[in-house]
Structure formats: structure tokens, C-alpha cells
Amino acid sequence: MSHTIRIALAALVLSAGAVLAQPQPGSPSGQNPTTRAVNEEQLLREFERLDGRVTIPDSKAATLEQPQGREWRTFREGWLPWIAGIAILGMLLALVIFYFTKGRVRLDHSEESGTKILRFNTFERFTHWLTASSFIVLGLTGLNYIFGKRILMPLIGPDAFSALSQWGKYAHNYLAWPFMLGILFMMVVWLRDNIPNRVDAAWLKAGGGFLGDAHPSAGRFNAGQKIVFWIVMLGGIAMSVTGIILMFPISAVDVNGIQLNQAIHAIIGVLFVAAILAHIYIGSLGMEGAYDAMGSGEVDLAWARRHHDLWVEEQQAKTASGPQLGGSRPIPAE
């Protein structure tokens, strides 16, 4: 990571405009321009990067030399595969261990009420799956930039791998937009229910029910879900901003900026993938019945009472005709 920091520092220094060499005091007349010639070594000591003037209207061409390219290369080829590998494999390992030690969180079928309550409406589910599906492609194609040539290319050969990566690049660039849209929608529909409150502290203290047998109280979203929401929000925004900058290279930031930007995009990206792996685990394999909420959108009232008691109370209070929550008429989430 120290390299990333160095890049960051370099970018800061450079963006301060210190790159164009120092002004000469007074008139240049009377001087010997030959003996005063600039010297690469000295310039690089002073400025880290060499910028000058070019006549073509391409600002990046005016950078003569940016040795930081070598540092970014060390980050990308030296550090990033390890960071990514540890984050993702580590998460998978943790989940596997959790699965085998704790097992699947079962739903007690005897307690099933038979009555369904609508937990996520169609638009919410659309939003979730829009974001989720594009995220999966983005994650895989993103990881391909790091691991493809190390794992896939030896298996399928350079031509097939290049073709795949080319499509992967298009997919990554184009699916970024539905992903960003999904993030935006999520913010609109779920932000209010994800604002942390006192209930969350109790929920966390109780370990979310995973540690003991009792189910702590929770609103529409419990603290664990809120954490996932905020990971997705903040991660998504970070990925969006850095991603857009990468899509329009050297328009907002210079080459050192883009190096730093890429490093941020890559690191947040792999951590994001690792976090979402956990989310996928709990939403599917890790907890019985959880999937239904995003599948059909309806969950059993008993399950809902156990896991989101405060939310169910709220819904019932809102509904004049009492417990007819499972009726054909969908009840808005709010």
C-alpha cells in the first residue's frame, strides 16, 4: 500500500502546479542558455515528473516523463494480486469455516403461520437484481484484469482469452451504467430505512441472533443489513466515481491522478467483492428463507415477526384491517 500512498502524495504535489520549472528572475538577456540548460537528473529530483509544452492540443502529451508509471506498475503487478487474493480467498475461507461450524440458519417450519407478508415490492426487487446482476459481471470482469492472464489465459490460450477480455471490457464499461443506476435507486428506496438507530446497537450487542438463541428486535432492516446497505452505497459510489474517471481518461485528472484513481478503484473493488460474497452467502446458503424476500418478495409472517418485529408492528399499525397482510392487495413497504 505504501506505493499507493506515494502515488497519492506525488499526485498532490504535482497537482499543486509545481511541475513547470522555476521562473527565472529578471531578463534572460545576457545569459548563456547553453550552460544553463536544464538537466534531467536535477529536474527529476525537484519535480518527480517532467512537464513541458507541446503544440498539439493533447495535454497529456506535454508530460515528457513520469517515472511514477513504474510505481503504479509495482502496485498493479506486485501488490494488487495479493490484496485481491487475500481479501477474496480469505472471505471465502471464513464463510466456509462459518458454514461448517455454525451451519445454515434454519427456519422453524412448525412456527410457520402460513400467512405471507410482502417484504419487497417489484420495483425494489428489480433494483436489487439490476444492481446484483451487473455487479456480478463487473466483479468477474474486473477480477479478470488482475487474474485473467494468470489463471484463464494458460487454460484457454491467448486468442480466446483476448476475445473474452475484449468482451469483458465492453461488459465492464457498459454494465457500469445499470449498476450505477441501481445504486441510485437503492438510495431512493432504502435510504430511510437504513439510517442507524438505537435498536441497531442492541441488535449488534446481541450478535444479531447468530450468537444466542434469542432474536433481537429489528426494524425493516436489522443492523447487519444496514451495514451491507452502507457498504454497497459507499462502495458503489466510490466505484462509480473512480470508474467514470477511468472511462474518460485524462479528462478530469492527469496521468498520476488516473494511476491513483485506478489503485483506489481496484482496492475498493476487491474489498467490495469480498463483502458482497458474505452478503450472497447469508442471503442464500447461510439462512433459510432469506432468499424469498428478494425472490418472491413475500415472506412468512412468523419469520418476519421473529426477524423484523418492529417492522411488522409498524406495518400492522398502518393497516386498518388488521392482520390481512397476506392479501392479494400488495402493501407498500412504507
Partner: peptide, 20 residues
């Protein structure tokens, strides 16, 4: 532009151009 010429310290004594 496979090749370009960059001028450092443009307009000042010490100015040098480098083809890159």
C-alpha cells in the same frame, strides 16, 4: 502521435526540447 517533441522551460534560458 507515436512521437512528439516536448519543450521544457519554454521561453527561458535553460529551455530544452526533447523528442520522445
Amino acid at each position: 502521435n507515436r512521437r512528439r517533441v516536448v519543450t521544457l522551460n519554454d521561453g527561458k534560458p535553460g529551455e530544452r526540447s526533447i523528442s520522445m
